[in-house]
């Protein structure tokens, strides 16, 4: 597995508890549209991603992230910076 695939797999694991409908996860899966998350779920989920990878995803960055692929890319960037 590449680093990115590994990150994707870890993020997918973190999504599982919030993926009530069992939506298939791809780079294109959108949080608001496909997973139908509200802002409270997003907050819980973001906190769990931050803690898993020991990074900070600011609310400013979150505003730019709509899909799972974008989130995985952001996590990769943040880990490489740190």
């Amino acid at each position: 597995m590449t680093d990115r695939e590994e990150t994707f797999a870890k993020v997918a694991q973190l999504i599982a508890p919030f993926n009530k409908k069992g939506i298939a996860l791809t780079d294109a899966t959108s949080f608001a549209g496909d997973l139908e998350w509200d802002s409270l779920i997003v907050m819980d989920f973001v906190a769990s991603v931050e803690d898993e990878f020991d990074i900070l995803i600011t609310m400013n960055m979150q505003a730019e992230i709509e899909t799972l692929g974008q989130l995985v890319d952001a996590v990769e960037d943040l880990r490489n910076e740190g």
Partner: peptide, 9 residues
């Protein structure tokens, strides 16, 4: 994830 910037309160 744009709604994350919205205020949950």
């Amino acid at each position: 994830m744009t709604e994350a910037l919205l205020n949950p309160m």
